[in-house]
Structure formats: structure tokens, C-alpha cells
Amino acid sequence: MSAESSPKIVIVDESPIRAAILEEGLREAGFTGVVHISEMQSLLAQIFALDPDVILIDLENPSRDVLEQMFQVSRAVRRPIAMFVDQSDAASIQASVEAGVSAYIVDGLKKERIKPILDLCISRFNAFAKLQDELDRTKSALEDRKVIDRAKGILMKVKGLNEDEAYVLLRSTAMREKKKISEIAQSIITASEMLK
């Protein structure tokens, strides 16, 4: 039985980068049967066709409700599915929801075989969130630089300062006003546009 060797894992995630990070981690840990679904149309049909043992889905994905239908016994369902984190796993469910990932397991797969998969997903999701955070910070630092450069240019032109003097003026004003240099720079740009 496949579930006894390496369980078939489906990752439902619209973010290709995060899915790749997750997939890589799972493969490194020896889970070879990993499939990524990024197309949400006819999600249930795709899942039925793949017939996985475990489904991992990102919590920002509205299609999570679609998966909930699989709990229901109805004509469209081949096998009932239950989220593995049950009453006794309150800490697991909290950690996974906080990380932004949810896991569903097809009945029959042993619970202890799932624990390492979920733990790995939680740590990868957290790693991805950190990466995203750093990327956002880098981006905003770059934005700040651009704004400061433009403000310096305006000061140099209007007040006849050189670049260093313009920067010193920005910095001392920011310190006096207890604001960020980029905020002062932005107000200079806004003001100069209004005065055009």
C-alpha cells in the first residue's frame, strides 16, 4: 500500500515559490510523492484524480471551504477525509493556523506518520513568511532611498546646496521633528509638487 511506503501528498497553493519551498523540504525528508496544484478551477476533480493521502492547503486560499465538502458523505465523494489534528492536538492546530497552513488527511493513514509532515510544513511556512517579510523590508528600503534621492535633488536645486548639505538638512530636520528621513523627504516632494 502506498500509504505505508511514501504517502502521496498534494500541496494546494497559489504561490509557486512557497509551494516549491515546501515541496523541496518534503522531498529532502524522504517524501517523494508530492504534487502541487495551483489551478483552483475544478479543484475537487483534480484531487479525486490524484487520490492523495494528505492534502496541504494555504489558509489564505478561499478554496479551503471546497475541501471541507469532502467531509460530507455525498455522491461526489469517494473517500471521507478528516483533518488529522483532532481534539488532542490543540497545540498542532494552533501552530499550523498561526503559520497559515492547514492539513487534511485521508482516513486510514496513521497519525504518527503525519506529524513530521505537518511539523515540516509549519517550519517551511514560517521560513517563507520571514523571507517575504525581508523582501518587503528590502523593497521599502529601496523605495525610501528613491524618495530621499528625489528630495535631495529638490533641495539642491531650490536652495543651491550640494548633495551632502542637502542630506544633512534632511537628517537634522527629521531628528528635530522626530520623524523618519523618508517621511521628511516625502513631504518635500509633496510640497514641491503642490507649488509647481
Partner: peptide, 15 residues
């Protein structure tokens, strides 16, 4: 929120 499952889970676990 984007799904009822999320609303339910976050309420249930106290988020």
C-alpha cells in the same frame, strides 16, 4: 477572512 473554515478555526482556537 477568505473562508468559513478559517473563521471557524480561528474562533475555535482563540485567535
Amino acid at each position: 477572512e477568505v473562508s468559513w473554515s478559517n473563521v471557524r478555526d480561528k474562533l475555535n482556537i482563540g485567535l
